[in-house]
């Protein structure tokens, strides 16, 4: 099960307002290669791993990704919490705002809602690990 620590894995203190940037960064929140996808991917794949070391690793990484999920949410939150109406309209963030206001909702930058279709978990370790590389390998 999961415990929570009331602390970001890395401190985030954004003073400026930048909804245009938030529009792009939100893809790391709810997009196909984002942190929520990563967490769900690893936490889903761990059940069928043939080695206990893999179960441990996927569990621990999946858990850490939830912490990353929180950090990205924090970034988007801090970039948008003090928006003016003018900033809102000028940035194009209004399309998101009209449905969610300042709320955080996992979606890609394109507006595609987060979905399990953004990751795969087929129960075969080689396939699953290849899926992991395809998603996280873009960062490596």
């Amino acid at each position: 099960m999961f415990n929570y620590e009331k602390r970001l894995e890395y401190p985030i203190n954004i003073k400026e307002t930048n909804p245009k940037l938030a529009k792009a960064i939100i893809t790391q929140y709810g997009g196909p290669n984002g942190e929520l996808g990563a967490s769900m991917r690893y936490l889903s794949q761990r059940y069928t791993m043939p080695y206990k070391e893999c179960m441990a690793l996927l569990t621990d990484i999946g858990t850490e990704e939830l912490g990353h999920f929180e950090m990205i949410a924090t970034i988007v939150h801090q970039l948008t919490r003090n928006m003016t109406m003018e900033e809102l309209k000028a940035s194009g963030f209004d399309a998101y705002y009209v449905d969610h206001t300042l709320g955080l909702w996992p979606q890609a930058a394109s507006g595609t809602p987060f979905t399990a279709a953004m990751f795969q978990s087929v129960g075969d370790p080689i396939t699953d690990l290849t899926e992991d590389m395809a998603a996280d390998g873009t960062i490596v």
Partner: peptide, 20 residues
């Protein structure tokens, strides 16, 4: 608070290494 973050990160990172 920063010291907590540092030490915990050392634990998290080494735990990932130890998993394998």
């Amino acid at each position: 608070f920063r010291w907590i973050s540092l030490t915990k990160f050392a634990c998290v990172d080494s735990s990932l290494y130890l998993d394998t």
